[in-house]
Design a protein around this nucleic acid. Structure first.
Lengths: 149, 149
DNA sequence: TCATATTAGTACGATGTCGAATTAAATAGG
DNA sequence: CCTATTTAATTCGACATCGTACTAATATGA
């Protein structure tokens, strides 16, 4: 692969890094005080995949250190958005359960974000998103796999 | 926009957040000890755009707080990868200049990453990257603009 | 020209993330 | 079984990022 072809891959990761920062800022401006993007991401995951996940499962899903997930979950618990209960299947482990307050907070945040998505749709249509997503997902899965090895 | 259509935008930002983490880890594993992704990103920017940028320009380019850029630049300077000199056009300001060591370190890091891009090309081809990039760039520019307002 | 507002950079304190080390529970192998 | 290894979660220390407050220099505009 010649030099100039690497440039495209480079640029891709550069855009991803900046997009991550911008979208995090956009999101956090619409979340209650003290709630940050990782909190919201965990709430979403617990809705999408089902709650009752363990901290290690969540850390893997988001590719963060498990110490980081401990910290994130304790923040969610302190705000009453989740409950951590012992895992009956494994005495070392815990499971995270959404509270009503957690579900409501997430729902409200999503509603507050809808106008942003509407505005965005002029720049990147739903068709665009749907054409881009599979490539990013494949790349994410590839990087995920190659990390484990 | 109905509920299920938001899901695609949601998923897009979710993938971006995870990709950012994975690619940062991939990169930092190939950088010298003490050099982190933001250092590398600044070196790249100084090559691509031209060195002689001011800290504020760099902070805007990466959408980070200017205090963060101060910290990043002082790290780069401490490692001898850039030099900060007074800006003759503005007594409040400085300009960042690449050193030979900085250019060499960046070049080596890029060469060390090439095999990774080669492997990646099976998952996401150059054509894929080139089809995805314009959408991400437009989205980044949109978010960038709407932040300023 | 001079007072006011804005801008560039930094110091500081708070907090998020990470890696290494630790403890307790589960698993594997003899 | 029983010991050695692995795994889940946490504590701790290091450091990156951020917002606020500050200083110095520049720009504005009456």
């Amino acid at each position: 692969m010649p030099e100039h072809k690497h440039a495209a891959y480079f640029q891709l990761f550069n855009e991803i890094a900046i997009l991550e920062q911008l979208s995090r800022a956009l999101l956090e401006a619409r979340l209650p005080n003290g709630i940050i993007a990782p909190h919201f991401a965990v709430l979403n995951h617990l809705i999408r995949v089902q709650d009752g996940r363990t901290p290690v499962e969540l850390a893997r899903a988001f590719q963060v250190a498990k110490t980081t997930m401990t910290h994130t979950l304790s923040g969610l618990e302190k705000h009453g958005l989740i409950e951590l209960r012992a895992n009956p299947d494994d005495g070392r482990s815990k499971r995270a359960w959404l509270t009503d307050k957690g579900r409501q907070m997430r729902q409200k945040a999503i509603e507050d974000l809808m106008p942003e998505f509407e505005k965005m749709a002029d720049t990147i249509t739903l068709d665009n998103v749907e054409s881009v997503l599979p490539h990013l997902t494949k790349l994410r899965m590839f990087l995920d796999r190659s990390r484990d090895i």
